[in-house]
Amino acid sequence: MNAIELRNLTKIYPQFTVNNVSLDVKRGYITGLIGPNGVGKSTLIKMMLGMVRPDSGSVKILGYDMPKQEIDIKQRIGIVSDDCFYYEDVSIRDMKRIIAPFYKKWNEQKFNRYLERFELSPKKKIGQLSKGMKIKFALAVALSHEAELLIMDEPTSGLDPVFRRELLDLLAEMMQDERNTIIFSTHITTDLDRIADYISFVNRGELVFSEPKDEVLDRYAIVKGDRQLLDSDIRKKFAGVRETAFGFEGLVEDRHAAEQLFGNYAVFEKASLEDIIYYNAKGGRVHA
């Protein structure tokens, strides 16, 4: 069962294009949507939320059709976004009074507990909250209407390390119920990746891969060695290479093949998600 099903989504903008993206987000797991800035992550998320209408393709959330059944969908999803969109000169309490009646499953007690836990005073105006606090508020709202699917767009960019770790616990708490699903997008690889089950990598408006994180990390490798090992054929085997006067460092997609190719002549290391983003984004050859 998939929580999100995107099929052949295309959206053409003057500057860039989201090109024919199909993506399944598995129910019961945490999926991280990663990639450099401005490659279409936010556009994809906005299409999931029905904020941006695709030029072609279809969006299904929790089995419901977007935008036809958008009310059913939004009853069941929580949204946490980097840019806060609440009314600035309204207090937290009033904001809650605006939001709560819209949800069938609003849990007032839960909400108050989260406010206390996040040390948010109900009297404070939204405009006075720091970025991190706004995200906490959005999270409290999302968690208080029993959302089955939590969609987070760049949630950690405004958060200090202390709350980032706390966030991991909150999300893992939500994931104790195996019907729940979380998807988040990020351009910086953070602690959030630790708990991600699946990684979907978007680059230049296209989906590069969407796989279990462990498989991705097993498959990719960083290869380091003497520059003399490289020729034009070998360079093609790399997703990206960084060459300096002292040698090269590159990302390969197939660790086994590379190990056979280079044998003992090169050093192999585990690639991090950051490595994967970096080399793929740079592509071809990277000079230091």
Binding site: G28, Y29, I30, L168, D169, A172, E173, M175, Q176, E178, D191, R194, I195, A196, D197, Y198, P212, K213, D214
Partner: peptide, 16 residues
């Protein structure tokens, strides 16, 4: 511990 509880406590993915 359950798979999900262990994942939470160790802060690793459920798949792991």
């Amino acid at each position: 511990p359950s798979i999900r509880q262990l994942a939470k406590d160790l802060q690793v993915s459920v798949i792991t």
